[in-house]
Design a protein around this nucleic acid. Structure first.
Lengths: 192, 192
DNA sequence: TTGTTTGTCTAGCAGTGCTAGATTCGAATT
DNA sequence: AATTCGAATCTAGCACTGCTAGACAAACAA
């Protein structure tokens, strides 16, 4: 019985190794460099082993995305928890979001730019994704304003942050004014 | 001398055919389906012909992006020209932007999601891209508010629209509340 | 009619995601 | 301790990708 358990544990370890390696490789050299062959070589197994853990490359991206969502939720909550008052909280939230996207571009891509085969805005959306949205909602709900649905407001604010994050990273927006854009966004969108 | 001209004309025609075919194929079956082989087959030439017009697939995407930028600029100006007053103009602008993105997803991807090898926010940014941004600026500049740099305001508004467009199309935001999100965005961001 | 340039195509390279079938290994049974 | 058998793993290969060298043909100039 304990032999089976050990095997299960080793399997779980290897799965974590795959995800961590994919993430590291993507962060270092971009997702294009994450090929099944290279990934297999790094974990020192053959290609088919990957497919005994995941249906395909897409699912590996999805796994990285889920890991990232959990981390992002934690980062957002950490940032807002030390801020006093709604306005400061939202500012801290926006900064933390953009900071996460800038520091973990590959993970951010896995979450929002690439197809990781994950469901969104749906009842079978994975828990970490719902929780990341919930982390946004916690701080943004209190500044939605009277008569404005907190969820809807959060969606709009999130979309704005997402736009800033992606356009900046793609070189569409010059990065030096990020802070001023953030301030403008918060000042206008958040009520009081 | 006229023989050369005819040849040049035919070459230009074929180049347009390549771009139009790539765009149509991408719009119908997604950019993944736009392979050099398929594209060559559709224009009834061999693969290498593509490379006598463009450096590679990336440049073909770039060409579609430029075409799209010109069309988007025209669509934005058409929408704002019939609206009375700053607020109505900005609302019309936002709707037109999101509408363009929803109706031309492949073109929108070529412009903002894929790598078409184009420079952005730079002096050697192609004219159509600068002009599309200018079209945004024309309507948004007048609602930036006192002491707010019109360009910076336009960047933020644009980023918000971009976020709404991409998150909605990727299934991250339920599409049924698009209009309400648009209204909320315009009401909050635009001054007066 | 010849020679040369220009245009186009065939064939192929190195890479991709993914998988069928062979093989090796290790645990359980005799 | 040897044998069996099932699970784990690998080798080899498929069909595809973007891209290109070199062969060939057509159109022009001499």
């Amino acid at each position: 019985m304990s032999v089976q358990e050990r095997k299960q544990r080793e399997r779980a370890d290897r799965e974590r190794l795959i995800v961590a390696t994919a993430r590291e490789l993507a962060e270092r050299q971009g997702w294009d460099a994450v090929t099944t062959r290279r990934l297999a070589e790094r974990i020192e197994y053959s290609q088919p082993v990957l497919y005994s853990h995941f249906r395909g490359k897409r699912e590996i991206i999805g796994a990285v995305a889920l890991e990232g969502a959990a981390e992002m939720a934690a980062a957002l909550r950490a940032a807002t928890s030390t801020a006093d008052g709604p306005h400061a909280r939202v500012t801290a939230l926006a900064r933390a979001y953009l900071d996460f996207a800038a520091r973990n571009p590959a993970v951010y891509d896995a979450m929002f730019e690439l197809d990781g085969g994950l469901a969104f805005a749906d009842e079978d959306t994975p828990e970490p994704l719902k929780d990341a949205f919930a982390a946004l909602l916690e701080s943004l709900g209190e500044v939605a304003g009277d008569g404005v649905h907190p969820g809807l407001f959060t969606e709009v604010f999130w979309a704005a942050l997402h736009g800033l994050a992606t356009l900046t990273r793609a070189g569409r927006l010059p990065p030096e004014y990020t802070e001023r854009r953030t301030e403008l966004l918060v000042d206008r969108l958040a009520m009081l």
